[in-house]
Amino acid sequence: MAVVGYTLISILLILVQTAFLPQIPMRPLFDLLVVQVVFTALSLPGVKGGVVILMTGVLADGLSGSPFGLYITSYFWLFFSIQIAIQILHVYSRSLIYLAILAGIFIENFVALLTLSVSGANTDTLLWAVERGGVQLLWGGILGPCVYTILVEGIRCARVGLQGTVRHLKGGEGV
């Protein structure tokens, strides 16, 4: 159930990035799914979280024109790094979330640069990609924690609503 719920959040964020924002019109300032990966890594660790990350990566890669694996790679290594960081540092704080979001954007841009250079991109394109990465890091640093908070609060509200509905239905059964 949790896997389905978290995957639905990923789909929702994908829709925001690919259909909602372009209608405004606006391009995503940074990848919102990075925040979702951080959120999943912290709240749904282990195999379940891994499955969500895989699904998210496959969907993002499938919809994008990027080489297949760019998003799976970025999300997997971010997820893995956060798991290791939690185990080694035994920390679960706001600063870890902040750093994880920035690390996620960095990893994604690093992988993108790798794929661009492997596919023979010229220096101008690589410089442009580095510049884009810097801009994304900046926006991620400013808006990332806000998106994370919205995500957490949204899920908390949805959970409360769902529990209320279930309780109501169970109460109804008894009558």
């Binding site: 496959v58 890669d61 499938g62 080489p67 297949f68 694996g69 492997v118």
Partner: peptide, 22 residues
């Protein structure tokens, strides 16, 4: 990733799944 970087249509079946789902 290096192999798939050389092909813009490397997503294959995953792209179809993603298109169907989203």
């Amino acid at each position: 990733l290096t192999v798939s970087s050389s092909r813009p249509d490397s997503a294959g079946g995953a792209a179809k799944i993603a298109l169907h789902m989203t």
